[in-house]
Amino acid sequence: MPPVISTNQLTKRFGQFVAANELTFQVEKGEIFGFLGANGAGKTTAMRMLCGLSIPSSGKATVAGFDVYTQTEKIKQNIGYMSQKFSLYDDLTVAENIRFYAGIYGMSKQAIKAKTTELLQELQLEKEAKTLVKALPLGWKQKLAFSVAIVHNPDIVFLDEPTGGVDPVTRRQFWDLIYAASDKGVTVFVTTHYMDEAEYCNRVSIMVDGVIAALDSPANLKQQFNAANMEDVFYELARNAKRKAD
């Protein structure tokens, strides 16, 4: 089976500044791929290129079999995305948010209804269906945002620091959702600053100053850097970074 994400020397420049420099990697179907790096290392830039939100400066990449230069709209049909910024409408209820996003992905009314019931059950939000999203605690919002990002059963879901500011218990629950999605065959591409979360990934890449400095399974990385945990691996690689945080 061909990889769902494949990049070859993918590069994005903003003027003189090279935000992402010659990224080359593959992500297999159903994989949970951790995309790590210090603030300003170029993670979000890389992710935005893969989502069709940003056109690369050079290099090649395909996502779900589609080209990131010419087939961005096709890519968009086959991916889900959860941005760093909150992506749900605060002034709509839980059910209305699900309905809206499912609707714009072209799902039928019946399918939306069934999906809404299913999601509310899964998230244990049945009682909150008519609550405005702004009234929900952050952890719940993030879980809902993830479920909405995959409401249309995409091949791949991109998560940009999905658990930032979320308490450890909710983070664990969030990862249960990620595993559940992965079990259904959804490829998960996730950035995070939590090294315990990096351990949950099948493979991890670590970006430093716009380039991928390491890429392997957490176990292999720890062995390679002779480190006890991913925190040490990350520190070993990122401490020499020249770029300051964004």
Partner: peptide, 13 residues
């Protein structure tokens, strides 16, 4: 400002 437009932009709309 709220960032929801980014979410819209990543849909095939």
């Amino acid at each position: 400002e709220s960032g929801t437009i980014e979410q819209i932009n990543v849909t095939p709309i």
